[in-house]
Design a protein around this nucleic acid. Structure first.
Lengths: 236, 236
DNA sequence: CTTTGTGAAATTATTCACAGCA
DNA sequence: TGCTGTGAATAATTTCACAAAG
């Protein structure tokens, strides 16, 4: 019915989409949205949206739709972004730099508090207003700074060590950019993002569309595509 | 049975994982892998892997397992990465710079041939050995350079314009980093990556783990998590 | 009249379990 | 014996369709 109902995994992924759109609507001064119109912009069916939102409680107003502000508040509460999450980035390379410079995380509830690297020539340099710190300071920063999230933005060969250090420091969740499955002894939530994987998925779809792989796989796979999936995730 | 069989979408996503691991095994000099061990490293069941790989044809060797090199060749052929995909990046900001500097795309079959930006002060500067070009050169570069993929790495407010320009230039697929659903008239495959969404999914999992949202959703959702999902995708 | 919430039906994906091959 | 490929069974997710609410 409503609360205390198991939320299917695909639904959880879509909650981010709903929040993104609710925020956009709120910014545009729109206060009401119905499942059909929301489905239109997000590429989902209206039934899908109603079923998803019904998991969050009695949220819709029959005959009217959903109130945008209510939606935002509820989605943020469920996703956990109604409070600030402090994060540290391990790795001041390409991805680490992009993340530190990316200005829009704070609005979404994520605050980057420090960046670490193992390379001596990078340590001490400035990055987006933060001094790049040596790895041995990680434990202190995490412990004293109320840091819940660690970002692994180092090459694959150092990713497990970086994750181990974050876990040892007491981090609760890891956002992993390295193309491998991180091992962990004690429980830590892990969500992975892989750029190569994204490009491969795109190459597959383009090939399919062009008919390059007609003898390999049936083109019906693209019949009508739209489902949103975006982060590899691991948990135990 | 084998070829000309509809490949389920979740399977296609996992093919990237199989390819990643097959490459790793090949580099490590390992020539044979069975579904149980492969499942172990990737966090999947052996049955899942056998079913997935069976879609690609008669690939396994009963009593032995899969030959790593065969696997690699077949996966690359299906994903379309047995050839080089040329790509252009629109946006020389944080993400665009990270992508241009990221050295590992070529190995995976993706070659960045040019980068574009609309801002006059950025145009003409050097980025990873490429001169940042003005948008009006996009059509020419795409047409004359055999470019199939365009990357949208501009702020959300300019993303649709960037996508329109890419589509008009004749691109076949778009990798989108902007947090919105891109519209398109003629068919173009689109895969999206959203860093904010990834962080939100992580926040949700951590909240669930900590019990912060016990009254909102049932914790059974994390009972035993492992499925890989990584790129929002759109097609029509 | 419009639009939600939701059981029931349909579809899609995963796991089981075993015949058959090396 | 070891391990794949695959039907059959199960589980998960989506779509349908409609009663009830504003």
């Amino acid at each position: 019915m409503h609360a205390r109902e198991k939320v299917p995994r695909p639904t959880v992924r879509r909650l981010s989409l709903y929040l993104r759109e609710a925020s956009r609507l709120a910014d545009a001064g729109i206060h009401t949205i119905n499942s059909r119109d929301l489905g239109q912009t997000l590429g989902l069916t209206d039934a899908q949206i109603r079923k998803d939102l019904a998991y969050l409680g009695q949220l819709g107003h029959p005959g009217v739709g959903y109130q945008v502000e209510e939606l935002q508040v509820r989605l943020r509460a469920v996703l956990g972004t109604d409070r600030v999450w402090n994060a540290v980035v391990v790795g001041a390379g390409n991805i680490g730099r992009a993340l530190m410079n990316y200005g829009r995380f704070d609005t979404a509830g994520f605050h980057m508090v420090a960046v670490f690297d193992a390379q001596p020539d990078i340590i001490g340099t400035d990055l987006a207003g933060h001094t790049v710190r040596p790895m041995h300071e990680l434990a202190d920063v995490v412990a004293s700074g109320d840091v819940q999230i660690g970002v692994v933005a180092v090459p694959a060969e150092h990713a497990q060590a970086a994750a181990d250090a974050l876990i040892a420091a007491g981090i609760q969740g890891i956002l992993n950019f390295a193309p491998l499955r991180l091992e962990r002894k004690r429980h830590v939530s892990i969500v992975s993002v892989s750029l190569t994987e994204a490009l491969e998925q795109l190459a597959f779809r383009v090939s399919l569309q062009r008919g390059d792989v007609r003898d390999l796989v049936d083109p019906t796979i693209t019949e009508q595509d739209e489902a949103p999936d975006l982060a590899e995730s691991e948990n135990e």
